[in-house]
Design a binder for these strands. Structure first.
Lengths: 134, 134
DNA sequence: CGGTATCCCGGTGGATACTG
DNA sequence: CAGTATCCACCGGGATACCG
């Protein structure tokens, strides 16, 4: 039988979708920016260049592993530039690239929306969680 | 000795940070909206009410588990309203709430930024990945 | 048709220790 | 000070099967 089963068709559709999703610009951006620390980092760097250690202090709570990792991702995407000054001990500065700076307003819009509506959301959650179980 | 060790201090700081992060509106919003499907879902619902099955078709690739799960989260946050019409078989419609609709422009801004700059990002990645290993 | 319940895998991200 | 290397716990999310 040449007819595909429902399973086969779904798997096929999913493959197609995967390709589509992988190409989706928004998802690709979210993969980097949607991370736990990326947003905070871009925000912190919006004020100007910062050293690794300064960021650790400002972001408070981030492990140096995640800090380095997130900075690498942002650097890879061309949002942040890493500058090494060879001295002892070595000095490393991070700053937003022009591309990175164009992202700041977008993130701030998201932040503004969040701060404006967080109460409504929290209220909605309370109501939802208190909803009759039947 | 009443003096705290460095470990203790760091753990303490992290606890404080945790409380702070947990309260951060942006992070709370991202927890819901940053999900793999939430954005696409809000976008799909921006055009009007849709049934569960319709969404499965439109979003193409989402499992019904994730669809239901994501819709629940959005409903819990008051962004989506779920309407059950008791008939056989039962009919369920989803639509954006007024609050949910205010999120649409913000998401679109993010989408626009992504589509505008995705090429630059992709280029940056290529350059970064091709960078001299030394 | 819409939803729930399980099981399971992989990625994210935290702790810790070590290098230059 | 900045970064790398492990190890590991947790959770998002996919597959599958079953309910109303």
């Amino acid at each position: 039988m040449t007819t595909r089963t429902a399973e086969q068709r779904r798997t096929e559709e999913r493959t197609v979708y995967d390709a589509f999703m992988a190409a989706c610009p928004t998802r690709q951006v979210m993969a980097t920016v949607g991370g736990k620390w990326a947003g905070l980092l871009v925000n912190a760097l919006a004020a100007g260049p910062r050293r690794h250690g300064e960021l650790r202090a400002v972001i408070a709570g981030v492990s140096q592993k995640m800090l380095t990792q997130t900075l690498r991702e942002l650097e890879r995407d061309g949002l942040v530039e890493r500058t090494v000054t060879p001295q002892v001990p070595v000095r490393v500065d991070y700053e937003l690239t022009p591309l990175g700076r164009t992202l700041v307003p977008v993130l701030r819009a998201l932040k503004d929306w969040s701060e404006t509506h967080i109460e409504e959301i929290l209220d909605a959650r309370s109501r939802f969680d208190a909803a009759p179980p039947g």
